[in-house]
Design a binder for these strands. Sequence first.
DNA 1: GTGGTCTAGACCACG
DNA 2: GTGGTCTAGACCACA
Lengths: 128, 128, 128, 128
Amino acid sequence: MISFDSFLMEDGSPIYLQIIHFVQRGIVAGTIADGDEMPSRRMLSAWIGVNPNTIQKAYRMLEDEGIIESRSGAKSCVTIDETKIQRIRSSLLAKDTQSLVTSMKQMGISKEEALALIETAWREEEQP
Amino acid sequence: MISFDSFLMEDGSPIYLQIIHFVQRGIVAGTIADGDEMPSRRMLSAWIGVNPNTIQKAYRMLEDEGIIESRSGAKSCVTIDETKIQRIRSSLLAKDTQSLVTSMKQMGISKEEALALIETAWREEEQP
Amino acid sequence: MISFDSFLMEDGSPIYLQIIHFVQRGIVAGTIADGDEMPSRRMLSAWIGVNPNTIQKAYRMLEDEGIIESRSGAKSCVTIDETKIQRIRSSLLAKDTQSLVTSMKQMGISKEEALALIETAWREEEQP
Amino acid sequence: MISFDSFLMEDGSPIYLQIIHFVQRGIVAGTIADGDEMPSRRMLSAWIGVNPNTIQKAYRMLEDEGIIESRSGAKSCVTIDETKIQRIRSSLLAKDTQSLVTSMKQMGISKEEALALIETAWREEEQP
DNA sequence: GTGGTCTAGACCACG
DNA sequence: GTGGTCTAGACCACA
């Protein structure tokens, strides 16, 4: 069973998108693998304190993207292959880096300072 | 008069937030300074092609944060000091780096790979 | 404005699918054309007596299929070209005929009787 | 013993309805006659790979319609007469033809084209 | 007013 | 218990 313990509400972006991204990152990280069972809608709903309909919406979109499969009465399963993983990985990384670089450039931050900031933040998250 | 020529619609995040962030980044970069005049609401509305209500909301929130001051009948002015600037700078940088670091760690990316990705993205944005 | 006056609840199939099919048939018939405005969610909701969320779901899927386009604050518009129309037409016709032929064959109906039944039903619907 | 060998999952319609329709069509076709034994619930469940509860529901509804009779401990039997057969036949045919005619009329298909499509589909199913 | 997200809770189909 | 649809109604972002 996939764990959603580390799932946290973040920014103001739609919850169903946050769920999708959480799953996508888990797939890229390898903590979510082909054949894994997703938690049921109701269970995840209670787990992270979100309405079942919102979970349903996220699951439906994951299904549309071919990331999970749902059969009525049975648990939903992850269905991915290496090709899909690489596609997701590239897409997520591009989004992350691009938004940071754009933002920092607008603030007049130098590349060196940016890299230093990242490195610091990386270390701080390890032993907070 | 502060220039909004380089203002671009980006992601799907709310426009009023994008405007606020644009001003905040300009302040950090030094292109927006204490005493500068903000464009009038209706002028900015036409300038960047956004509904006046949305502009109004952004200005209102900038006022609430003490970043601008609107005197009735007169133009809105930027009112910041070095302390505020540093606070904004820290806040923006923290938000940017933290979201990237968190996201990449969740994906199991190594610090070295992350730094390399940032560096590449930085260079690519310079000569696209 | 597209008319939903002739929209009727039919079988037990999901309402959002019935809405989608209604729109698709209208497109094939030419009563719904490129550039036409869709009724707003709330308005259609009241019109055909269905919850706004159900309408929203149908519209969202029509959007995913590239049949309509929605921009926040503005009305949703139909966006189709001749290629899409032909694709929809073939798909709908194939589904209709195939299900009827399969069903009738299982009942041991002869082709001639089937054609006669269709012809009769066709005429009866004209002057009921 | 009635054969369910030619039973196939079709569209997305509920399985219990598909079972009911299969029996009804068999009755109309004459392959299922008065007095025939239905397979036991658990046997049919294994036969067509469907959950026993679903079978139970279908049998229950067939009982309610007076099409089969279940005596406790004994096998379920088909109990129909000519009158019932004609009623079922009319009902099924009407449903099939009406839905097709309605759909095609909404698409602006001419009667001639409709008949031609049916004829083609009929022939194609014979030698696929 | 329009599009979009979310909550709360019900009901059905399926295993 | 699980997946899926639907209702009723609220709130936000946008024009």
